[in-house]
Design a protein around this nucleic acid. Sequence first.
RNA 1: GGCCUCGUAGUUCAAUGGAUAGAAUAGGAGUUUCCUAAACUCUAGAUGCAGGUUCGAUUCCUGCCGAGGCUACCA
Length: 593
Amino acid sequence: MNLEKDIKHAISTAFKEVFNHLAEPESIALQPTRKDFEGSHTFVTFPYLKVSKKGPEETGQLIGEFLKQNSNLIAEFNVVKGFLNFTLNDNIWLDRLRQMQTDINFGFAPSNGYRVMVEYSSPNTNKPLHLGHLRNNFIGYSVSEILKADGYEVRKVQIINDRGIHICKSMVAYQKFGHGETPESSNLKGDHLIGKYYVKFDQEYKKQVESLSANGADAKTAKKEAPVLVEAQETLKKWESGDPETVALWKKMNGWVYEGFNETYEKMGVDFDSFYYESDTYLLGKDLIEEGLKSGAFYKNNDGSVWVDLEDEGLDKKLLIRSNGTAVYMTQDLGTADMRHHDYPFEKSIYVVGNEQDYHFKVLFLILKKLGRSYFDGMHHLSYGMVDLPSGKMKSREGTVVDADELIDEMRGKAELKTKELGKIEGFNEKQAQDLYHMLGLGALKYFLLKVDPKKRMLFNPEESIEFQGNTGPFIQYTHARISTIIRRAEESGITLDLRENLQLQPQELELIRMLVQYPEKVHEAAETYTPSVIAQYVYDLAKEYNRFYTELIIFGETDLNITILRVFLSIQVASVLKKGLLLLGIKAPERM
RNA sequence: GGCCUCGUAGUUCAAUGGAUAGAAUAGGAGUUUCCUAAACUCUAGAUGCAGGUUCGAUUCCUGCCGAGGCUACCA
């Protein structure tokens, strides 16, 4: 069934027959043939020269000859500088295409029985989502979908950082300057309203630090003793002691933020299966510390603080409990990990978190290992790079953030403008038109953020807005819409899509089938490496190839009906795979545009 | 200082140790009586520097230069 496997077996046999050498099929490496050469699969002879005791050219020639004679897979071959290129029988490819059509689940692996928890988004509740969150959310959502397609059972979760000094700062500023303002009265989304007070807090804080400094305080004390900061710290204490008034305000303000977030998530097209709130989890983990002390994984200092020594692993000593007995972030994360595994016994757990926390997660996983948690093995930090602006890193305090809501709206607006310019909305009603603008704007944005390897930092220049031409989401969406027209026309013309004939394939047709066949492997690769960009690159290449096919070959009006059938048939499969691939990226494929 | 990333066309991104380092965009030249020109074709343009391993290095190793991050009894 598997083409590559079959070819590898054939090569293995050839080695046995020609060189009397046992080459395990699994150990044979095949690669796709480069475009400028004839063939589809390439075998590199260099590693086998010691076995063949011949030059690279001759080795390739001998293997090629043997296979051409003895294998029904191989129609032709050529050898270029030790690279043995195979051209397969056209019927092999046509068979693949026929199989694809009957398999509705093409591209979806059967259940593998593994459960995986994917955590992403995990915002603070003191400000709106920004561009960095968009990358995080799109990656998290996409990886979840890819894992599902690869046979996993997935639970998408987020941990909401709903407590702590950051929200207290917004609370203090709101009490001071808010005059009872609400999202309704201010006509602001809840998260933006709270963000406004977070900024206000910072402004006030800076003012106070300045005036303290002007009155002779040194910089350190001024920063520590500014009244608003002291107030925020007191608010945090009050919250921790359960002061009803403080808790009520906290609930009200967080409620506004959640409303705002939900609206944004919906616009973004991401969702979650369950939520964890830090206010519920921040006290967890202390029992794990006790456990670790007992087992000797951790040790206690004279001052009562608890540490773990990771110097054997090439890391530092890490604090787990302060000398005053309070927990740190790490403690909480340990407890939360245990709780999550209890809630949903997973084989894998993916944390989609920025790469500035690489060290934190390295330590977290090592500690879980030291505690003997069997699940530690399946834990993975999906570390992604920052989205940089030309001016450098985004900093909320300096106002150099790109707001998520604004950016989405901007993209939608740009899609609308462009669509109208091209006169593409004839026959659309208002709702359909609006849906299309959103689909395209969001498609452009998602593709822009997902086409880059998650691990790498990437640059976003707000001046040069995201394009709709070239290697973009809308290009792929356009291709899909284009094919949809072909399919509609085929239906209207009433041709029977029965691919019976054994036809000779044109290069473009062959290339398309070759690419289609690869799709499940790409999904698997993306799932194993947690890399949506694999899929993004793939759908782009497929769309590009289809456009070439579309331009160069006549689909309707070909004299041989069987060729028309083949081309429509092929178009349908391309559309289907494009749509599936786009959905793995969270991008919708329009029928018309 | 220590540790971790990353340096590829003007720009934004690709390249399981393999062939002539791919795209896109910006630049130049073309294609529309024909299924959607958000398309297609042609053209020009890049591996930070110096060594090493290898039949073969953008990829692995060492040093240097440059960018960023982590290195809190913060979360």
